[in-house]
Simulated assay, not measured.
Amino acid sequence: MSIRSDYHMHTHHSGDSKAPMEDMIECSIELGLEEICFTEHLDLDYPTCYDDLPPEPFTLLPGPYREEYEKYKAVYGDRISMRFGVEIGMQTQVADQNNSFIEENGFDFVIASIHIVDGKDPFYADFWEQDTIENIYKKTFDTTLENIKCFDNFDVLGHLDYVCRYAPAGDTTYSYERFKDQIDEILKYLVSHDKGLDFNAKILSKDPNGMPNPCPAALKRFKELGGKIITIGSDAHRPEKIACGFDRMRDIALECGFTEYYTFEKRNPIAHKL
């Protein structure tokens, strides 16, 4: 495995993970990683309609998160580089709050993601009951473009086509080509504003032959349009998911024309050869 940095992972500081931070660090070291970045969730104004979640499940407490991060950085810093990151859930009505949160907390790295469209989460079945699947995809990409135009304080766009992970069983309507016009507008905006993409391996922890996010065709198009920065992350919420599928991720990135991937320190990108 030549990719030595996992730049998307979560611990118990995220509402959808129970993983101890120390376990994530130790597993990363065992896998031979040289650098990791914790990217805990902040999803303000997350919908309250889901009974399996506590109230405000993705409200991140930066104080305890920073304290534990610094504690383990002191313990493990001579064995692995650690970075302090966040995954911001974008919604236009909380853009100013998200920006203030980032400015106040000195993150090394910021992922901006779309997890909510029209007040619902694609993870849940009711999301897919709102409209036709094709219209839902179109709405999701329109929402993504709208949000990155009103919220600029991020380094990479998270899992661009995340929505396709949770499409109803048997659905095959998603492809870059089918939604090319909308996806290209997103990619062009990212390129023109020196933003990167989170190349996200989460699906590969369940299906080694699955399609990462963004799909290879969209990643290749990003490169063709002048895109430069990609970070590579497992989106692990448990230690055993760290660095999942990274050999395949490297192969795809190379096939799409990339020769480097990036890490960040104090919001500054650092290139590494694939």
Rank of each mutant, 00 (worst) to 15 (best):
M1H: 11
S2M: 13
Y7W: 14
T11Y: 13
H13F: 15
S17D: 08
K18H: 10
P20E: 14
I25C: 05
S28Q: 11
E30R: 15
L31F: 11
E34G: 06
C37V: 15
H41L: 01
L42I: 15
T48G: 09
P57A: 05
L61I: 07
L61D: 14
Y76N: 14
D78P: 01
R79N: 15
S81Y: 12
M82Y: 03
G89Y: 05
Q91E: 15
Q93M: 09
Q93V: 15
D96S: 11
I102K: 07
F107M: 11
F109P: 14
S113D: 02
S113E: 01
G119H: 04
D121E: 05
P122N: 03
D126R: 04
W128A: 03
I133F: 11
I136T: 15
F141V: 00
T144W: 00
L145R: 00
N147I: 14
I148S: 06
K149N: 07
C150Q: 05
F154Q: 03
V156K: 03
V163A: 05
R165M: 00
A169R: 11
T173C: 11
T173I: 08
D181K: 11
Q182C: 01
I186S: 03
K188G: 13
K195W: 10
K195Q: 04
G196R: 00
D198R: 00
N200L: 00
K202L: 11
D207Q: 12
D207L: 08
N209K: 14
N209G: 06
G210I: 01
P212S: 11
P216C: 08
L219V: 01
L219M: 08
L219W: 02
E224S: 14
G227L: 14
K228E: 15
I230E: 07
T231A: 05
I232T: 04
D235W: 03
D235E: 11
A236E: 06
G245P: 06
D247N: 13
R248H: 08
M249Y: 03
R250S: 09
D251C: 10
D251I: 04
I252Q: 06
A253C: 05
E255Q: 12
T259R: 14
E260T: 08
Y261T: 02
Y261P: 06
Y262D: 04
Y262K: 06
T263N: 06
E265D: 08
A271V: 13
K273F: 13
L274S: 07
